[in-house]
């Protein structure tokens, strides 16, 4: 390299200069150096030209792309994604709230139902228990209720005052 300004003939400074990363004073010194140093000047010109060429290269590639068609493709895919997969995960995700709420509600309902609504019907108690019977009966009929299996005794007794008195 030509070293007419040897202190600033520095690759790192050249890179920072190309990036616009130098302070005003540093930049001024670098520009002075570049004017004097042919080799550094060539490097700067070559790297700048390459960057410009790269931008044009990408611009050239961009021009060949049909972005309108691509946009439609992306929108269609996103819509399909929403319909086919997007909706289901959202449903699954919503289950993490719905499921516990449903279980809690179920437990509460069961508690309320079993304690307040579905209380067992009061079992009818017998109106009297006959331990013994003396006297004469004209007829006796025995029934049993179908569900509670209560025995009902139905009888006709003769009109015997003594016997009537002995009935307990």
């Amino acid at each position: 390299m030509t070293h007419s300004y040897s202190n600033t003939c520095d690759e790192i400074l050249i890179v920072r200069y190309l990036d616009g990363d130098l302070e005003a004073g540093e930049k001024e010194r670098m520009e002075t150096h570049i004017e004097a140093c042919r080799q550094c000047r060539r490097q700067v010109v070559a790297l700048r030209a390459f960057s410009q060429d790269l931008r044009l290269r990408v611009h050239h590639a961009t021009d060949s792309v049909d972005f309108v068609a691509l946009e439609k493709q992306v929108l269609n895919k996103a819509l399909r994604q929403y319909r086919s997969r997007g909706g289901f995960p959202r449903f699954i995700a919503s289950l993490k709230y719905i499921l516990p709420a449903t279980v809690t509600a179920g437990v509460l309902l069961f508690f309320v139902y079993s304690n307040f609504v579905a209380r067992p019907a009061p079992v009818p108690v017998p109106s009297a228990i006959i331990n013994s019977f003396t006297g004469s009966m004209s007829s006796v009929m025995i029934f049993e209720t179908p569900e509670t299996r209560q025995t009902i005794l139905w009888y006709n007794e003769d009109t015997d005052v003594k016997s009537e008195q002995n009935a307990v």
Partner: peptide, 21 residues
């Protein structure tokens, strides 16, 4: 990384630089 990228590019472009732009 930027420094190394430019340094490498400089090497690649060196023949062009030496030829004189």
């Amino acid at each position: 990384r930027l420094f190394h990228a430019r340094k490498r590019l400089k090497e690649i472009l060196q023949p062009l630089v030496e030829e004189g732009i």
